[in-house]
Design a protein around this nucleic acid. Structure first.
Lengths: 226, 226
DNA sequence: AGAAAATTTTGCAGAGTGTGCATCTTTGCA
DNA sequence: TGCAAAGATGCACACTCTGCAAAATTTTCT
């Protein structure tokens, strides 16, 4: 359990593969049923039946009924962390994150239809949107660690020193704070981009919205002209 | 619902007051019981009994058992929106938010003990931390609207034009995007400040962490020195 | 291949959550 | 004081979720 497995992307072992398949089947069944009948009307029994397993087994995979509606792609987080590590050293942390997230969003485009249904479900019950949010937050800590590693490895360093860091003490503290803040803010950036784009779909390409958001962040959120 | 009432802070009407009292009693009972016995072991029945109402009444106030652990102060959001509106016009949106949030955090200091218990409960079950997060997100939209109003009213305007806004179309779109982004990022800032401060309590005063976070945001999240 | 070991699936019983509905009590108001 | 509106409560019932032990399946070892 510690040497070579690491439960990464495409893993050998019939057992592992079956478990992944079952989980995916349950999640997909849940989303499809919820998109059609409304999330509240979908019982665990219906989801289990659609995925061809017993109710009890459902609860072996998800702690809660709602969890089935929340996680579409269980290892998206891992892929993104890898992308952050692989980003060119010349990029600032913020830029590296932007690139990694852009790639991941392109990946989601593959499953286009399912994500669309997912979005509809979440829109219909804000309750679930909240849970989804939370799930992303869970990845945040790990992402922060990757960012910290990248910085220690000596990614692009600030041309000017960050503000208000007098003592060594403060500098160390900030170094610990920064990755967490960046990871959290970047996650927020994705969320707002998606929300804004969903709200006014026809008006702008998603990537433009996404770039605009990161531009605003990089500029320090300056007040827009009235 | 639009003239004078606005469900603000101290409201007349015995009915309103009683409902507030009941809700507060339930929330407080829930947090205290959870702090003592662990959130998972606290039944709705126990909470209701501690608050002196029936189980059925509990569900008149909260949709879910977990909701009782989540919202300590139901109208903190409304107070903060007011504070943003009341902030000096000379402040940038980001600065105005910082001030409003500082004030609100000071307010929370009054209920010190309860918040401390709340923090312990959330720490013990990340599950609930997630829900709390979501609850804050619910306020976000309304906060964004207040920010938008403030900008329209002509708060401090950018000395230099924001990046990459060629057409009028894009400028309008950005004007809609900006408040949402700012509200979301500010919320994230508070969360990270609290988390970081909780993680290393003794090392720094909370307000210092908070100021540092906003300084980083205002500087555009520059890469720290390796 | 065949048997033992490890792991997963499943059914069942039971505690707890959450909702609709009818009824009773309290509050607001003339 | 008395009526109308709103809240609280009890009850029945569907659904969620957990612990446990038996059955089924995969992996490993010979």
């Amino acid at each position: 359990m510690q040497g070579m497995s690491e439960k990464g992307a495409a893993q050998g072992g019939l057992r592992e593969r079956k478990k992944r398949a079952t989980r995916a089947a349950l999640a997909e069944a849940a989303v499809r049923l919820a998109a059609e009948h409304g999330a509240e009307k979908v019982t665990v029994e219906a989801i289990s039946a659609a995925a061809g397993v017993s109710v009890r087994t459902f609860f072996n995979y998800f702690d809660t009924r709602d969890d089935a509606f929340v996680v579409i792609d269980a290892d998206a987080g891992a892929r993104m962390r890898q992308a952050v590590l692989d980003a060119p050293a010349a990029l600032s942390p913020l830029q590296a994150l932007r690139e990694a997230m852009t790639a991941e969003l392109a990946e989601a485009e593959q499953q286009h239809e399912l994500w669309r249904l997912h979005a509809r479900v979440l829109h219909a019950s804000p309750h679930l949107l909240v849970r989804t949010l939370g799930a992303h937050m869970a990845d945040e800590t790990e992402l922060a660690e990757v960012i910290a590693a990248r910085i220690r490895a000596g990614g692009a360093t600030a041309p000017v020193s960050p503000p208000s860091c007098a003592t060594d003490e403060e500098r160390r503290s900030a170094l610990d704070l920064y990755p967490r803040l960046l990871a959290a803010v970047a996650g927020t950036a994705v969320r707002i981009s998606v929300e804004h784009w969903c709200a006014r779909q026809e008006e702008a390409a998603f990537l433009d919205v996404f770039q605009e958001v990161f531009a605003l962040l990089a500029a320090g959120l300056p007040a827009p002209p009235a």
